[in-house]
Design a binder for these strands. Structure first.
Length: 912
DNA sequence: ACCGCCGGGTGCC
DNA sequence: ACCGCCGGGTGCC
């Protein structure tokens, strides 16, 4: 019988399958096939064409089983020797279940091979017999392919059931975003208790850091069931995919630490590395103490009679140790009886200077203590030899990691940290594996790609992705590289795990090997599509999933009723500024003019279609509040454009006007400040991805969210690249002051007279205003630096370093553009913040203030907001308050609400 | 495998 | 006996 297997090869002898355990090898290739099949371009714009009841045949030849309700994967098998149209059916873990019946397979093969549709299967009723079973197929694809596919299938006698397919509701990002904000909130409750860090961690941990450490250790050590798995009788059952397995599903060892910036993710990670080695023991590290002991041994043969026997014993052990494969470090725990001698030895070193180091002996001694003193438990399914933790971070924080290791690891502990960076980096895998920590950057990763890259050969104990949201795009080289690491434990550190949409999460879960969602198809079907279609259940599942693997605390979180971190007091005061006679006259003129125009729009009901103009009017007023010279000279009206080129020119001009001032223009789709701005033919500005999303969802019927004019992707106008970041020289022939400038200078001079080392942030949305402010600062001899969005990364870090320096010569003022820099910016050297002009979005202001009011701030922080009396600014502040209220109860607000509130905002601003 | 399909055996009722 | 019917053999692609 056994030989039949070979003789008959592909033949139909059932023995073949009974003898072969292809669960492992075949499942892997099938999984790969499914993965490959679903790694097609994003299925985002897909619509459901229809359903079809099909049949899976040949069940008896395969080992894969399917439960009622379980999803299955459909993979084309063009190489099948019996039928080149074959479509294989596999379960979630990639075990083959059977084939699609051949006539249906022939029809499907055409559709699948020509990428007309993606076909998905669900087995609704359980297996009635051993030979075939029904499968519900659904066809998904681009709207324009829909009819082709339906006709195609109909011609072969398969009528797609298109009934009951409702048009998916169009959900804008912000509605999801609200849900996401919630998604990552409150992930703190009832996690584990606190855990003390190993002794080698030199910095005492704060309570919330001990909690994080405890949670992280538990995530690495405990072997409970992963999310959505439960035990049902003898089987493990996945409640989402309805898949069940005999073996306990592999648990994700790791997760996402999504604490807010400044709560000490780095320190906690360092503590984790030192505290949780194999079997929950601390990382064995060399300590100077042990080295000293050996020095002693070699330097003095007879030192103290009462210790001689121990030294002899140690030496004996050392020799014995030579023959056993010992861990080459001193474990932190040592037998109590030895502690005495270690201390004695330490004391002795004070009297016996000039010893040579002998690391070999130290290493052996260390190994001996752990291996002979404490017998290791043989619990290892895992590779206990894995030692090194690989940390990948953006270049900008690399030095921070090195500093933090320096700072937080006890002085007497020697931790091997290798910086895998630069062209002469050590590529020896043996060397890398032997390190305690290897640090590298995402850039190195994308160049050090390929299977033979040293980073991909090493068996890591742990891989940590700092600022892990960097890999959210799965198409990048580094994302692909990150998935191929061999590691036992995987962590993602990120303050902002979701930036735009659910899609951002997939890469993170794939990196963590959260099965089955590491295969894109299952993720798309179970989470992404339900969620983007606004399915409550999908969102709930996502929430559960995230909750299981994420720890997130914000600066405002509380533990046992006490704030996580206590920051110095922060006071915010508003300083009302009176305009001068001349300024007031100019302002009133502009205001009346604008008020008339907007009033007309309001009564005509055309506010939203003239939105760009309304914004321009408001901008003009806001600029007048700061400084008369801020006014943009160019202000062409969008009249009837003669030619397309002319229209384009005018649109660009509009866009330039909105952007040039550096104001915080907000996209009406995502309600964030615009990224990659584009302007529509109706002159409304959006982020390109946001408006592209709207257009792709609504297709031909797409309309501008603000004015409902028809919009097309081809008609979106971008800002010409060469003009980006171009900063026109100020027309500073004759500089003049303004009331706001005066108010600021009065404050700065007063502060300097109190303490000339007080550092201030001076913040404006208008970069040109910052330029104007430079003149009086120079005149009064203030040393200042400037940070705005136009500066290169290198320049930025340099400026920040200068400003943060405590040297007497360091600048005391930073001119800061409101939007410049990421959230990570650390400007704790400043204790005073001057906000020169109110922002539309109060969160932007908060974020800016938080750059100095954050962990590390030692002084009280004083924030001054300058607001011009009787002006648009005062009204903006009122609306800000209202917006904040709205934001707090963010859920339930619909797009129409937002539009209505926008119109009423504008009316309020103009006091109409 | 409680079906369908195939092909050989068979042939009034 | 160029059909129908019966019953055994058989069975994914």
């Amino acid at each position: 019988m056994f030989s039949n297997r070979w003789r008959f090869g592909w033949d139909r002898y059932t023995e073949v399958d009974l003898f072969t355990d292809h669960n492992d090898t075949n499942a892997e290739t099938l999984s790969q096939a499914i993965r490959a099949a679903s790694e097609e371009p994003d299925a985002d714009g897909s619509v459901l064409f229809g359903h079809l009841q099909g049949t899976v045949v040949g069940l008896r030849y395969y080992t894969g089983v399917v439960n009622s309700g379980e999803m299955v994967g459909l993979v084309r098998q063009p190489q099948n020797p019996y039928d080149r149209n074959a479509v294989m059916v596999a379960n979630i873990y990639g075990n083959q279940v059977g084939h699609i019946k051949k006539e249906l397979a022939a029809a499907m093969a055409y559709v699948m091979d020509n990428k007309l549709a993606k076909v998905e299967g669900v087995v609704h009723s359980g297996t009635k017999n051993k030979f075939t079973m029904p499968v519900m197929l659904s066809f998904w694809g681009k709207e324009e392919k829909k009819n082709t596919v339906i006709e195609m299938m109909a011609r072969r006698g398969y009528k797609l059931n298109t009934g009951g397919i409702g048009q998916a509701a169009v959900f804008f990002f912000f509605q999801l975003k609200n849900a996401f904000d919630n998604l990552f909130e409150g992930l703190m409750e009832s996690k584990d208790g606190e855990k003390e860090a190993a002794k080698s961690v030199g910095t005492p941990l704060l309570p919330h850091q001990k909690k994080a450490l405890s949670w992280m250790c538990a995530r690495e050590n405990k072997s409970g069931l992963p999310p959505f798995w439960e035990k049902r009788g003898e089987l493990y059952y996945n409640t989402l995919t309805c898949f069940s397995a005999k073996e306990i599903p592999e648990r994700v060892r790791g997760g996402i630490l999504a604490d807010d910036m400044g709560l000490g993710k780095t320190l906690t990670t360092i503590a984790l590395i030192l505290t949780n080695f194999h079997n929950g023991k601390p990382l064995p590290v060399e300590t100077c103490v042990s080295v000293t002991v050996l020095n002693l041994y070699f330097s003095i043969t007879v030192w103290c009679e009462q210790h001689l026997f121990i030294i002899k014993w140690l030496f004996a052990c050392y020799q014995e140790g030579q023959s056993s494969p010992l861990k080459a470090r001193t474990k932190k725990q040592m037998p109590p009886k030895l502690e005495g001698i270690f201390i004695s030895c330490l004391l002795f070193t004070l009297y016996a200077p000039g010893f040579q180091e002998d690391l070999d002996f130290a290493a052996a001694l260390g190994g001996l203590i752990s291996d002979t003193g404490f017998k290791k438990k043989k619990t290892s399914k895992k590779d206990l030899k894995a030692r090194a933790t690989l940390i990948i971070c953006p270049l900008s924080v690399l030095s921070n990691w090195l500093d933090q290791f320096e700072q937080h690891v006890s002085a007497n502990v020697k931790l091997n940290v290798y910086l895998y960076y630069g062209s002469d980096r050590n590529r020896s895998t043996k060397f890398l594996s032997s390190q305690d920590v290897v640090i590298t950057t995402y850039n190195i990763l994308s160049s050090d790609n390929g299977d033979k890259s040293p980073l991909h050969v090493v068996n890591w104990l742990r891989v940590v992705l700092d600022e892990g949201h960097i890999i959210r795009n799965p198409d990048t080289l580094m994302s692909k590289a990150v998935l191929r690491f061999k590691a036992q434990r995987r962590w993602i550190l990120s303050g902002t795990p979701i930036q735009n949409s659910v899609k951002d999460l997939w890469m993170l879960l794939a990196f963590l090997h959260l099965k089955p969602f590491d295969v894109r198809e299952w993720w798309n079907r179970v989470i992404q599509r339900p969620v983007t279609q606004g399915n409550k259940e999908g969102l709930q599942n996502l929430q559960t999933l995230v909750k299981c693997i994420t720890l997130r605390r914000t600066k405002n979180s509380e533990v046992n009723g006490r704030p996580l971190v206590s920051l110095p007091e922060k006071t915010v005061c508003v300083e009302k500024v009176e305009l001068s006679q001349a300024e007031r006259e100019e302002y009133e003129l502009a205001r009346n003019e604008g008020r008339n125009t907007i009033g007309r729009y309001v009564s005509e009901g055309t506010v939203l279609s003239n939105y760009a103009h309304v914004l321009a009017i408001l901008m003009r007023l806001r600029q007048l509040c700061c400084h008369p010279d801020l006014l943009a000279k160019t202000s062409t009206d969008l009249g009837a454009a003669a030619t397309p080129a002319e229209l384009r020119e005018r649109l660009i001009e509009k866009l330039r006007m909105v952007l040039a001032s550096g104001s915080d223009e907000e996209c009406s789709v995502c309600l964030e400040s615009v990224r990659l701005p584009v302007i529509t033919h109706c002159a409304h500005v959006y982020c390109r991805p946001c408006i592209a999303q709207v257009i792709s969802t609504e297709k031909e019927t797409a309309r501008c969210p603000l004015c409902r004019s028809e919009i097309k992707t081809s008609e979106l106008v971008e800002f010409p690249q060469e003009e980006m970041g171009e900063e026109n020289g100020t027309n500073s022939e004759k500089w003049r002051t303004s009331s706001k400038v005066q108010a600021l200078m009065a404050n700065l001079l007063r502060l300097r007279s109190e303490d000339n080392r007080i550092k201030c942030l001076v913040v404006s949305q208008f970069t040109r205003f910052l330029t104007i402010l430079e003149t009086p600062l120079r005149e009064h001899g203030f040393s200042y630096v400037r940070l705005d969005g136009t500066m290169s990364l290198k320049k930025r870090t340099q400026v920040i370093q200068e400003f943060q320096s405590s040297a007497d010569s360091s600048p005391v003022i930073m001119l800061l553009s409101l939007k410049a820099g990421g959230v990570g910016l650390n400007l704790t050297a400043a204790s005073h913040v001057f906000l020169m002009d109110p922002a539309w979005n109060p969160a932007t202001e908060e974020q800016c203030i938080d750059r100095c009011h954050r962990l590390g701030q030692k002084r009280k922080v004083c924030v001054t907001k300058f607001i011009v009396k009787d002006s648009v600014e005062e009204n903006m502040v009122k609306i800000q308050k209202k917006k904040q209220d709205l934001l707090e109860k963010a859920f339930g607000s619909t797009n129409t609400d937002r539009k209505a509130s926008r119109i009423s905002d504008i009316k309020a601003l103009m006091e109409l």
